[in-house]
């Protein structure tokens, strides 16, 4: 499998709004911690180390 870089979200605006809402009223530190947890949850969903490394490269 290769990393998906084409649009794949079924509802991009809905996802984005949910993401921003999750951070509502959090201070910078709490937001960063939420992001860290979220990345770990999503990484588990992806599973494959090669894919995760490819994603890290895109984000860097």
């Amino acid at each position: 499998m290769t990393l998906k870089l084409d649009p794949n979200l079924s509802d991009p605006d809905g996802f984005y709004a949910a993401l921003i809402d999750a951070h509502e009223a959090l201070d910078a530190e709490a937001s960063a911690a939420l992001n860290a947890r979220l990345i770990l949850v999503l990484a588990n969903q992806i599973g494959d180390l090669e894919l995760l490394k490819a994603a890290l490269d895109v984000a860097k």
Partner: peptide, 13 residues
């Protein structure tokens, strides 16, 4: 991300 990667473009609002 949107400049290089198509996946981010639908998020641009």
């Amino acid at each position: 991300l949107a400049a290089d990667h198509a996946f981010a473009r639908p998020l641009v609002n």
